[in-house]
Amino acid sequence: MFEIRVICDPADTDRVSDALSQAFTVGPVRQHPTRDGKALRLYVTADHHSNTGPWPDPETAYALAPNIISEIGWTAQTAADKPFGTRLPRDFWLRKAAVLDRIALKDEADGFPGDAAEIATEAAERLMDLDDAAVICDPRHYVRQQYAHWTKHQ
């Protein structure tokens, strides 16, 4: 994520804003006049576009996923099989984040307030850190996108 500042003629602000949104994923554009009042300063938080496609809904993302109990077992066994201090592969972190997201989704649908959503978000953020993913999104949406992509290529 990065910040962009543009100084432009007030008549060009819409054109500049449109160009920025086509080139990057952007937040709201903040406008401030220059000190002389003849131009505008535009500030926008931006990030590179994700090139892996749109955010799938949970049903689409997890359509090919094994049942939750099976995934918990796979995650626990994979972690147990690795010697302490050994780096676990990306697939482990993706599947772990996905199963935690699925548990949180089930709890949310059942109306159970708890910490499942927080734990799922933390696991998703871990995956984003591992991927060095510099995208502006809900971390759990990122997991769903990556999981859907991963299952289609397995």
Rank of each mutant, 00 (worst) to 15 (best):
C8G: 13
P139D: 02
R126M: 01
I72E: 10
R95C: 06
I103S: 04
V26R: 08
A98L: 02
G85P: 02
P33N: 05
T86V: 05
L94D: 00
D131I: 00
L130F: 10
A97C: 01
A63I: 08
A124H: 02
D115L: 03
R15E: 12
D18T: 09
G85S: 03
T60E: 15
R126F: 01
R102D: 06
R102A: 10
T151N: 01
D14G: 04
R5S: 13
A46N: 05
F112S: 08
E125A: 06
A79G: 00
S21P: 00
G53Q: 03
D101N: 07
M1F: 02
T151W: 11
A98F: 07
T151R: 15
Y147D: 04
G73Y: 00
E3G: 00
D131M: 11
D47M: 11
D129L: 05
G73E: 09
S70A: 14
V16A: 14
G85Y: 01
L127P: 05
P28C: 05
R41V: 14
I136V: 08
Q31A: 13
T45W: 11
Q77W: 03
D12A: 15
Q77L: 14
P28V: 11
E3R: 12
L20R: 08
H149K: 09
A79H: 08
S21W: 06
A76L: 13
A116V: 02
G37W: 10
P10Q: 09
A133K: 01
H149C: 03
A120V: 03
L40N: 09
W74K: 04
T60D: 11
Q31W: 09
F92M: 02
L88C: 02
H141W: 11
Q145H: 14
D101Y: 01
W93L: 09
P139M: 04
V29W: 06
L105H: 06
I7F: 08
L94V: 00
E71N: 12
I7P: 03
D129Q: 09
P113A: 06
V44Y: 07
C137N: 03
L88N: 01
R90L: 13
K38W: 11
A97F: 12
L100R: 10
A120K: 06
V16N: 06
E3M: 12
K38N: 07
R90W: 05
S50C: 13
H32K: 07
R15N: 08
S50Q: 03
T75I: 07
R140I: 05
D132P: 01
G73A: 10
Y147C: 05
A120F: 03
A120T: 08
D47H: 05
D115G: 07
A117I: 08
A97M: 04
S21A: 10
A19C: 02
A39H: 14
T13E: 15
C8K: 09
E59F: 11
S21E: 12
Q31H: 14
V135A: 07
T34C: 05
D18L: 09
A134R: 15
Y43E: 13
E3W: 12
R41S: 14
D9P: 02
